[in-house]
Computed example of a mutant assay.
Amino acid sequence: MTDHVRVRPGIPEEVAVVKWIFERFLQVKSEATIARELNRRAILTSTGVRWTRAAVNTVLRNENYIGNLTFNRRSRKLRRNCTCNPPELWITSERCIEPIIEREVFLKVNKIIEERRVDLTEEEMLARLRKTLLKEGRLSSAIIASTVGLPCASTYQTHFGSMMNVYRLIGYTPKRNYAFLESRPRWAEQEAKLGSHIAMAIRKAGGRITSSNRTDYLRVRGSVNISIRSALCCGRQNRAPYWSIKRRARLPQGWIAAIRLSEHNESVLDYVLLSADGKVKRTINFSERARVRRGIARFDTPDALARAIAKLVTLKDRCAPAPQDKRSRPKQLHTKNARARR
């Protein structure tokens, strides 16, 4: 009640990007094209990630840039889930902050977006996707996002359950095996159970978990990072299989505890523990021969893996150097600096 917040435009570089997005849209009328050009120029969003079609669309529809603020779009009551309120409950304050986009430009852009939007039946959605398949020869989320007149992939998933169901309905079989995506919720549950095993073993060994709100990531004593993943089995024709650990976010430096899946990814083969240097960009691939060569430990049960991780964590704490006395440290530094000046 005693504080006052004043909303103002961001730094000039960010304002310039927003203005360029509006100007460029009036020329190309494609969010996907704008996203590709921004990524090509290595310009990131305000959250530090690459641009997508949806991110550009969010900018183009944001009334903050013409000086309007809207409140009560969402609400959360009594620790329940956040709910979206209907537009009639929104509270909009017009021209209350400094605009950076001219109102006429904003209205022209949003008129193009609204006129482009067409409510399609599910039959028409599939028919347009078949035409895109005949034209492109294949389908992917990127192709769907860049094709004018097609709903985005998330809209197809909302209507048909998953992209695999969509592909089946139009008779398309992708070269890449996407069957694992349908069983992904089941393995996410197994990852959560493995994380609970590991957390319990660490606590029994005297460790302290400092981040327990995530099921795929643990942080012990504020210094040791443990990521929980599934190692997907990837088959090769006439060659030995290999396993792939795909990141959902940047893997921090520390350890990766992974559920290694058997052929066809229908059951658990064993469990592996490998180190991460924090520089993994997309995937970690290894064969059984590479696992032995790289010293990646394997375990038959989740309990054995959890005990090994707990031992590693407690061993690291015992080997850590004792903290120095903060009261005596400045004197030592002062003495060294005095000697250097002499």
Rank of each mutant, 00 (worst) to 15 (best):
R8D: 12
E13W: 02
E14P: 04
A16D: 14
A16C: 03
V18I: 15
W20M: 09
E23P: 02
L26Q: 13
E31S: 13
A35K: 10
A35D: 05
E37S: 13
L38I: 02
A42M: 14
L44Y: 09
T47W: 11
A54L: 13
A55N: 10
V56I: 12
V59G: 04
N72M: 05
S75L: 03
L78E: 15
R80I: 09
N81P: 11
C82S: 08
P86S: 03
P87T: 02
L89T: 09
T92M: 02
T92W: 00
R95N: 15
I100W: 14
L107W: 04
V109I: 06
I112R: 07
E115T: 12
R116D: 08
R117G: 08
D119Q: 06
L120C: 01
E122P: 11
E124G: 00
E124A: 08
A127I: 01
L129C: 03
L134Y: 05
K135I: 10
E136Y: 02
E136D: 15
R138M: 00
L139N: 00
A145E: 15
V148T: 12
G149S: 06
A153C: 03
A153D: 02
F160I: 04
S162V: 01
S162N: 07
Y167L: 02
R168Q: 15
R168N: 11
Y172L: 01
T173H: 13
N177R: 11
F180T: 12
S183Q: 14
R184P: 07
W187E: 04
A188V: 13
A188P: 01
Q190K: 13
L194V: 09
L194G: 04
M200W: 04
R203Q: 11
K204V: 13
S211L: 14
S212T: 01
T215R: 10
Y217S: 00
R219Y: 00
R221L: 09
G222F: 04
V224T: 08
V224A: 05
S227V: 12
I228E: 01
A231T: 11
A231W: 03
L232S: 12
C234E: 14
C234I: 10
R236Q: 15
R239T: 08
R239D: 15
I245R: 04
I245P: 06
R247Q: 15
R248T: 14
R250E: 12
R250T: 10
L251T: 06
P252D: 04
W255K: 03
I256Q: 04
I256W: 04
E263H: 07
E263A: 10
E266F: 03
S267Q: 07
S275I: 02
G278I: 01
G278R: 00
K279T: 05
K281D: 10
T283I: 07
F286W: 04
E288T: 05
A290F: 00
A290Q: 14
R293C: 02
G295E: 05
G295S: 11
R298Y: 10
P302C: 07
A304E: 12
A306L: 06
R307C: 07
K311Q: 14
C319M: 05
A320W: 07
A320S: 13
A322V: 14
A322D: 09
D325Y: 06
K326M: 12
R327D: 14
P330R: 08
L333V: 08
L333R: 08
T335N: 11
A338R: 13
A338Q: 14
A340M: 13
